[in-house]
């Protein structure tokens, strides 16, 4: 059995472990709600964790993981954690939890079949995933500060401009809430 096949075979248990680890970063009273409530509208956080972890896993297993796709999936989880009560480390730590889950479920099989090398490679992929996640997290935080500034500007700029206190009219480009690079990052 190849490493990939092993991953696929244990997919549900690995994902189960991974989701559990993520959900347990929340208070116990909340964790249950996140895990149990199936309604994606009543429970958007839980739904995002569940669906996106699976997407990420599938991408990684498929071999030809696409960076952009991964970005999209990671973004949906990290965007939420970036505004919740987490330190940056806690907000992103969930990515490494995938390593733990895989090791825990596959360790025996891998030893038996001499596939430890493959595991190391896989863990390297997860390390890269963390770097990707880091970029997303930072861009989310930057965006928050950007938006704070934008809001202040929207609130007062027009008044100041019209009362003559603000004489230089900023052009449309700079009034856009996002810089070009942010747009690209998100695409």
């Amino acid at each position: 059995m190849t490493f990939q096949e092993l991953l696929l075979k244990h997919k549900s248990s690995i994902l189960g472990d991974w989701v559990k680890a993520i959900v347990e970063t929340y208070p116990a009273e909340t964790a249950r709600f996140l895990r149990q409530s199936k309604d994606q509208f009543a429970n958007p956080v839980g739904a995002a964790i569940k669906t996106e972890t699976e997407h990420i896993f599938d991408q990684l297993v498929s071999g030809g993981a696409e960076r952009q796709e991964l970005d999209k999936f990671l973004d949906r989880i990290i965007r939420i954690r970036a505004v919740q009560d987490f330190t940056p480390a806690l907000a992103l730590g969930f990515i490494y939890d995938l390593k733990r889950a895989v090791r825990r479920r596959l360790e025996k099989d891998l030893k038996q079949q001499g596939l430890e090398e493959e595991l190391l490679k896989f863990e390297e992929t997860v390390d890269n995933l963390m770097l990707q996640g880091f970029a997303i997290y930072v861009s989310c935080r930057e965006q928050i500060y950007d938006l704070k500034a934008m809001e202040m500007r929207n609130l007062y700029a027009k008044v100041l401009e019209r009362s003559g206190i603000f004489t230089v009219v900023p052009d449309q480009e700079t009034l856009e809430p996002l810089s070009e690079t942010d747009e690209q990052n998100k695409a």
Partner: peptide
């Protein structure tokens, strides 16, 4: 009440659960 949302055969399925 809540809306039961699931993905089945790659298609989102909404059910009034």
């Amino acid at each position: 009440t809540k809306l039961d949302y699931r993905v089945a055969h790659g298609q989102p399925v909404i059910r009034q659960g």
